[in-house]
């Protein structure tokens, strides 16, 4: 990657680590969601083990959406976005790199925390590994799809809720195949690889569609 890309990645990563530890907040939110669910469905360990992968995935989806509204908004508010549009760098790549940095700062900690939270949900080691692996492959897709929503709502003062509403329908396939793959690894009704490869494909598609659509939305928002 060229030096400007590295500079952008480092800057974004540094900012998300320095400002209030957004990675930590995401993981805490993840923990809170996972803790709250047994209160709702009851402390039945067998039930929790069965729906555990789904809980972890939904928790990860919500935690990802939570942090996304600032992805471009912070840069828009202080005029950085204007300069990025004029910098002479391909905006699609800029978006992709920003998403990557955002994922490393907020998505990766969720993946790392997933096995620990799996213990609360009575997941066996295989299930834990499967969920972690599917999250590792699938959460980048959530960030990239979410970037579209973040770019569309960049000019709205309270865009966070709207962002979630816009993004969740688009994220349904990722959720379905993520949970399916994790379930398949546990009590194989289908082979693990089929949904897992579809999940990988979804992430790759999102890596193309997300930056292109988000860049287009950002160009329009400068007006």
């Amino acid at each position: 990657m060229s030096s400007w890309g590295v500079a952008l990645f480092n800057r974004d990563l540094r900012l998300s680590v320095r400002i209030g530890g957004s990675a930590l907040v995401g993981v805490l939110f993840f923990l809170a969601v996972v803790t709250v669910i047994p209160f709702g469905v009851g402390p039945d360990l067998n039930l929790l083990a069965r729906i555990g992968p789904a809980i972890l995935w939904i928790g990860a989806l919500l935690a990802t959406l939570l942090g996304l509204d600032r992805l471009f908004q912070a840069d828009r508010e202080d005029g950085t976005l204007d300069l990025m549009l004029m910098a002479g760098r391909p905006l699609e790549l800029v978006v992709l790199i920003k998403c990557l940095a955002h994922w490393v700062a907020t998505g990766l900690p969720l993946v790392v925390a997933a096995p620990l939270l799996g213990i609360f949900l009575n997941l066996d080691p295989v299930a834990m590994g499967a969920v972690t692996l599917t999250l590792l492959v699938g959460t980048p897709a959530l960030t990239l799809i979410g970037a579209i929503g973040a770019a569309l709502t960049v000019s709205l003062r309270r865009g966070g809720l709207l962002l979630a509403v816009l993004v969740i329908p688009l994220a349904i396939p990722v959720l379905i195949f993520g949970v399916s793959a994790a379930d398949a690894a546990i009590h194989d009704p289908v082979p693990f690889l089929t949904p897992f490869l579809i999940l990988t494909a979804l992430s790759l598609i999102a890596a193309v569609v997300g930056p292109v659509a988000a860049a287009m939305a950002l160009r329009f928002s400068a007006d």
Partner: peptide, 25 residues
């Protein structure tokens, strides 16, 4: 209009995928 157009097109790309994944599910 522009923002909604982008979202509509992304949704249009995504609808077959959603349909496929919901059928699978």
């Amino acid at each position: 209009g522009k923002a909604a157009a982008i979202l509509t097109l992304v949704g249009a790309l995504n609808l077959p995928v959603i349909k496929f994944s919901v059928d699978w599910w």
